[in-house]
């Protein structure tokens, strides 16, 4: 049984997947620390539904970002803790999760996936069957320059803001929550076919303020502490 988890937004996504069967849950919480309170209790609920115990887990796939710094840390740290019990781990980006959700809902792409980058910026990556270029950070006000009229999608919490800045309409999912969980389930099936990752390295896509404000003092920082491991 594979555990999939995404804690990078205020919506916590969890999946337990065994073969063709999946038990999934979407928890709408507050921003930041609240996932710390909900994650394991919700997982217990799913295990009870599945009639299994934590010992039945065989691996963990976890979203490593980009997303809220604090909330993504809770998910990745949880996966790292589970790794110490002997479970292999695999990471996926927030873009990959959304692309997978769109794909399972029938959108093959190519499509720009836009995530809330905060500070009037957007995190963006263009996806087809895989990433069609590197993820980037872009000023929200200049979104039309990025999109060039091409199809795009954004999560419902960010879509109004992105729509106001874009000059072409967004793709929409009829049931974003259900599609995201289907996407997560799919990743639980696909990623364990690849070599495990150890440790999981987050993909922040945004440097720390220290790097911005003190560039000279930040020369020693490795990439993993700057924007993280790009995917």
């Amino acid at each position: 049984m594979i555990l999939g988890l995404d804690s990078t937004t205020e919506r916590l996504h969890l999946a337990l997947v065994e073969g063709e069967t999946a038990w999934t849950r979407r928890v709408v919480g507050g921003v930041g620390r609240s996932h710390s309170e909900a994650l394991l209790p919700t997982l217990n609920e799913l295990l009870t539904e599945a009639g299994r115990t934590p010992r039945d887990l065989r691996g963990v796939v976890a979203c490593v970002g980009p997303g809220g710094f604090t909330s993504l840390r809770i998910g990745v740290a949880t996966a790292e803790g589970l790794a110490l019990t002997g479970l292999p781990t695999w990471g996926f980006s927030a873009f990959e999760l959304r692309a997978c959700a769109l794909r399972t809902a029938g959108y093959i792409g190519p499509v720009w996936i836009l995530l809330d980058g905060q500070r009037n910026e957007v995190f963006a990556q263009r996806w087809g069957t895989g990433p069609m270029g590197p993820a980037c950070r872009y000023p929200l006000a200049e979104l039309p320059t990025l999109l060039q009229g091409q199809p795009w999608w954004a999560p419902e919490a960010f879509a109004p803001k992105a729509s106001a800045a874009a000059d072409c309409p967004a793709l929409t999912l009829v049931d974003e929550g259900a599609s995201t969980l289907v996407g997560l389930t799919q990743l639980c099936r696909e990623l364990p076919l690849k070599p495990p990752e150890s440790p999981l390295v987050p993909f922040y896509l945004r440097e720390t303020d220290a790097e911005v404000n003190f560039p000279e003092a930040s020369r020693h920082l490795p990439d993993a502490l700057r924007q993280g491991h790009a995917r």
Binding site: L40, P54, A77, E80, G81, L84, T85
Partner: peptide, 9 residues
């Protein structure tokens, strides 16, 4: 978070 996951499993 890691410690809770360790203890839980």
């Amino acid at each position: 978070s890691a410690s809770k996951a360790l203890a839980w499993r």
